[in-house]
Write a protein that binds this DNA or RNA. Structure first.
Length: 641
DNA sequence: GTTAGGG
DNA sequence: CCCTAAC
């Protein structure tokens, strides 16, 4: 019934309270210890995550390992390096017959992981056996993977028997049901961590010499266990250490990783946020530089660090991760899980946040992060939509984001997903589109209009990029709701870009010359003057759609004016500067000024001090006299103080 | 509506 | 330059 999900949380204090004191003797040898604690969470029958009660937490805190026998809850303990040593010193209570499991799941930096409590062998051979050190091998890893798969196939039946462990092994079977009062149910699923772990069989104490570690030898004294584990029953632990480089992961995988890490779903679609969260979650209370664990192509790869440790390279199959996750979700359908998580979230400003204090703490942890921009979320929602409905795909950036994600089916597969739709008028007719996909807060998606407006244009300018890419006619648009995907996709960003760029030449002919540039010194270096035909600040196409502003190189006089303006009005007073000094340059917006100033700062600080060679410019960029750059610097410095 | 910053 | 969160 109950499964275990570890949720990262900063419970370090809690850990350190107990752990610190106990492992003091080893602290010197405990180089690698990255104490990361996890929040205790219970997965209730309906798949929801129930935060551990204080009692439970307390329990784990006070007793290092208590797996209560005959208890309806099992507290699994997965030790970190430090704690691993600690385990050897303290009693470990393992019990069978637990209906719910509260597990401490380790995070990155943890030396070894007890992956699946359900396989009691893991406990026996893993926790008890410290003597017979089996270097971790890939072969072994394979074994474990197979084993895990097998166990999953067999359901929980296999692992459900939690044999009592021999007392002499320093692990005591405690039958007292002191801590858990809930109804007793024969436990079916114990620890089912989403990730498959490999265990470093060797206990730290062994590595760290240390005669003080009695328990270690005690454990080792159990020949049976040793032999047992020496065989194919090696525990499934993995050393996970270092940083996860999530950059290459598709959003879905990130979400999945997020879930594996935090034990809960997330619907946040902002990659940056997810990465940050995951990274933070893994690193969290660790003040250890992170560099090692990388996620590559659905694999978690732990790079070799310069630690003296036996094994650090562990390749953890993400597939396993997914599988395990599925198993975890199994009792309730994926849809359910989705629905649940969605139901439990608030929508704040378009982002889905969780009400849990968890989130706020997460947020606090980050150094004030810029909210993920809507745009990304929207784009990604569109991706979701596509994944759901589409069969007709126009290759797009969005798509590439999510392809290769084995995970996506899990979290998106819900056909039941409630889709609020709205009517969008497109090409004179209304089509129904999912609401989330196209909520634009600011100005309307230009490209839609551009497409519309361009359509006629395209007809005229046959062979234009837009034409070839948008394989539909207005009639198609209007009549076929089924087509809406292609419509949406066409309307989405990638096409827009393509249109904007490749069609630019056409535009130039199309656009009427509204405003000649009156700029006197518009003899700019790039020879723009010849092909600049629309100098209105807001270029407008026939359909009234906005298009990307034509690039306009900054002239020296403009730069000079800008500098002048900054010195006069101060940096930041862009609108002032614009009003006073750029009134004749309608095409320079205050934002432009700001951007230019930013660039000026960059260049000035970049090259003025060292390169006395005035301005070695990059190709194409304007030559800015040293004098001006110096002025910029000076202003900047004055500004900063 | 402006400004700040990331992209 | 664009986009958008934050003022």
């Amino acid at each position: 019934m109950g499964t275990v999900v570890g949720t990262v949380e900063d419970r370090r204090d809690m850990f350190e309270g107990s752990a610190q004191t106990m492992i003091t003797p080893f602290s010197s040898t405990n180089q690698i210890g990255n104490p990361v604690a996890y929040k205790l969470v219970r997965v209730s029958g309906d798949g929801s995550l129930v935060p551990a009660t204080d009692e439970e937490i307390l329990e784990v805190n006070e007793t290092d390992i208590h797996i209560a026998s005959d208890a309806c809850q099992t507290v699994g303990y997965l030790a970190t390096d430090e704690e691993n040593s600690e385990v050897n010193e303290t009693d470990v209570h393992i019990a069978s017959d637990a209906c719910q499991t509260v597990g401490y799941l380790p995070a990155e930096g943890i030396h070894s992981r007890l992956s699946q409590l359900e396989s009691s062998e893991a406990i026996n051979s893993g926790l008890l056996q410290s003597d017979n050190v089996q270097p971790y091998t890939d072969q072994y890893n394979e074994e474990m993977l197979l084993k895990v798969e097998k166990e999953e196939r067999l359901g929980n039946a296999h692992g459900s028997q939690m044999p009592s462990t021999p007392p002499d092994a320093n692990i005591q079977c405690s039958n007292e049901n002191n801590f858990f009062e809930e109804d007793q149910v024969h436990h079916e699923a114990l620890l089912q961590e989403p990730v498959s772990f490999s265990m470093n069989v060797q206990n730290e104490c062994k590595m760290n010499e240390s005669d003080k570690i009695e328990p270690c030898s005690n454990a080792a004294a159990s020949p049976k266990e040793t032999a047992f584990s020496a065989a194919a029953q090696k525990p499934d632990f993995s050393r996970v250490r270092g940083e996860i480089c999530l950059d290459n992961l598709p959003i879905k995988a990130l979400q999945e990783t997020f879930r594996a890490t935090f034990g809960r779903e997330t619907t946040v679609k902002d990659k940056t946020w997810l990465k940050r969260r995951i990274a933070m979650g893994l690193i969290n209370s660790c003040d250890v530089p992170t560099t090692n664990l990388r996620v590559k192509d659905s694999k978690l790869v732990v790079n070799q660090e310069k630690s003296n440790d036996v094994t650090n390279v562990v390749s953890k199959d993400m597939g396993d991760d997914v599988r395990a996750t599925k198993t975890k979700d199994a009792p309730s359908s994926t849809d359910h899980v989705n629905g649940h998580s969605n139901a439990s979230g608030h929508i704040l400003g378009g982002n889905l946040y969780y009400a849990s204090e968890d989130y706020s703490s997460e947020q606090r942890a980050a150094k004030r992060v810029r909210k993920p921009t809507r745009r990304y979320i929207e784009e990604l929602s569109e991706t979701d939509e596509k994944q759901q409905n589409d069969k007709s795909m126009i290759p797009s950036k969005d798509q590439s984001l999510s392809e290769k994600s084995e995970v996506r089916s899990i979290s998106v597969s819900s056909g039941k997903r409630i889709t609020v739709t709205r009517m969008v008028s497109l090409a004179g007719s209304e089509i129904e589109v999912p609401y989330v996909s196209h909520v634009r807060r600011s100005r309307p998606r230009e490209n839609i209009m551009a497409l519309m407006g361009c359509h006629s244009i395209c007809l005229e300018n046959k062979g234009s990029a837009a034409e070839s890419n948008l394989n539909f006619s207005p009639s198609q648009l209007s009549s076929e709701v089924v087509n809406r995907d292609s419509v949406e996709k066409s309307a989405s960003r990638p096409v827009q870009k393509e249109f904007a760029t490749s069609d630019e030449n056409n535009e130039e002919h199309i656009l009427s010359e509204v405003d000649q540039d009156m700029e006197p010194e518009h003899i700019d270096s790039s020879g723009n003057s010849s092909d600049d035909n629309n100098d209105t600040g807001v270029p407008i196409m026939q359909g009234g759609a906005l298009r990307r502003k034509h690039h306009r190189a900054w002239t020296l006089s403009e730069v000079t004016k800008l500098v002048e303006g900054v010195s006069k009005y101060g940096a930041g007073k862009w609108s002032e500067i614009k009003k006073h000094l750029f009134s004749s340059h309608s095409y320079r917006t205050s934002v432009d000024l700001k951007d230019k100033w930013r660039n000026l700062l960059k260049t000035s600080f970049a090259q003025s001090p060292s390169n006395s060679v005035g301005s070695l410019k990059k190709h194409g960029s304007m030559h800015i006299p040293m004098q001006i750059l110096l002025r910029v610097r000076e202003l900047a410095e004055k500004q900063s103080q």
